[in-house]
Design a protein around this nucleic acid. Structure first.
Lengths: 194, 194
DNA sequence: AGCTTCATGTAACGCGTTACATGATTAC
DNA sequence: GTAATCATGTAACGCGTTACATGAAGCT
């Protein structure tokens, strides 16, 4: 009944109360690493969740031309989130542009291919660094190892992110060795060895 | 101008001619590992690509009530695909339900948490096996190491898939040790030690 | 006789993106 | 003064999902 966006919102509100604006900001960092949404989606979604009594709001002081609303998750909302987390995995449809590009890398010349992989490598490298920084910050708190603390979820997620990006980096390096392998540059199409 | 779906279709047609029906089938395996689309999207997309002269069709014999059409990529289509592959990476919006669930794992009891991770582990394990099988099949051909051959793209992609899933499997095992760690089961909420 | 595969298309609906709209306060 | 931040909302549009539609050939 509740949409996936609804669960993303509940996941955030389960950790602490937030305004719609703050929710939209959180969708950039750190939640943005695995979930993204615009404010134009969030405000109507909050209204839907409220009519289903999964969240509740109180009006607080704020700078905007309209009332600033602070949202809290209800007991029913917490229960809905728990049920969602415990529910069976249904494979999600994937649409991965990066892999699509690599899959079609044979269509471009070797220089462009190297550039492509180097760009990809840089994206993964930067993200790996970010995750490592956040992980160090998180584990210094001491709350991460308590399985009933929100930080436990952040810990597992960040650790997964680090492992994932480290593997991706190694993959990029491996691809670069394949692209630079002697003989790889000389292509069947380019008869420049005569 | 061309949509991401359009490039996914071109990626397939660059490898060989296909009917719309075959394209929809390919979106399950192997392309379905990183791209997914329904036939109801594909048929209109083919029409759009054709009006942009990136693909072309000829009518062939077929079993359906309408004409069966075999689509071929044009030179312009190949050029558009090449330009797309060589274009800069723009970070795609992510929506990862699996990570969202792990991020909220602290909301459920330890048994449910272990079950969740075990399910996730199984998904990754199965996918890893599939990738390994396909990789073995592919590398036995001898064409995979030629950077201008379509199999080169498949090779890099599958290798990435294997590395990615192997890392994910290890991550799941690590999470299970964290969840089964002595002290992890005894939670602050459950005062059963008195 | 009924299910699956081949083979293409349209239609309704929902989710996601981009743009429009408002207006106060703080920083440069 | 002008831009950014805070703070909420609506509207138009496009992409993706689900369902409807048609009909032959082959399998159980």
């Amino acid at each position: 009944m509740t949409s996936t966006l609804g669960f993303a919102v509940l996941s955030l509100l389960a950790r602490r109360e937030l305004t719609g604006y703050e929710l939209a900001q959180q969708m950039k960092r750190p939640v943005g690493y695995f979930w993204h949404a615009h404010h134009s989606q969030i405000y109507p979604e909050l209204a839907r969740l409220e009519s289903a009594e999964l969240v509740r709001h109180t009006v607080i002081d704020g700078a905007g031309p309209r009332d600033t609303k602070r949202y809290t998750i209800t007991a029913a909302g917490m229960e809905a989130l728990r049920a969602f987390v415990a529910s069976d995995f249904e494979p999600q449809p994937v649409r991965d542009l990066e892999t699509l590009k690599i899959w079609s890398i044979w269509t471009v010349d070797p220089d462009a291919a190297v550039l492509l992989v180097e760009q990809l490598r840089e994206v993964h490298r930067e993200r790996l660094e970010t995750y490592r920084r956040e992980l160090a910050e998180l584990t210094s708190g001491g709350t991460a190892e308590d399985p009933s603390h929100p930080d436990f979820g952040s810990w597992l997620t960040l650790e997964g992110g680090v492992r994932n990006r480290a593997a991706a980096l190694e993959w990029c390096d491996w691809m670069l060795t394949q692209l630079r392998r002697p003989g790889a540059v000389t292509r069947s199409r380019a008869p420049d060895r005569r």
